[in-house]
Amino acid sequence: MAIQINKEKNEICILLNKDFYNIEEIKSTLKDFKEVCKGEVKEKKENQIKIILKPNENSVINSLGHEFCNYSLGLMKNHSVV
């Protein structure tokens, strides 16, 4: 699963493939989401990027990970421009 939600820790863990998601775009997504959550981005060896998000409010925990990925994908599209 690319998105894992840990409600006890109030934490979302996202694993994204480096071939499809650029780390710079993920960082700027995190910057744009700073009012909703705190987080960190780690580059993993297995061609993956690990993102850990800690939402400021519990109510958004189910959708935040998905919205984060959607936003990153939108930035990737703008990056490639077709």
Partner: peptide, 8 residues
Amino acid sequence: YLLLEGDP
């Protein structure tokens, strides 16, 4: 919600 996976 969209996610891209696999081998490019």
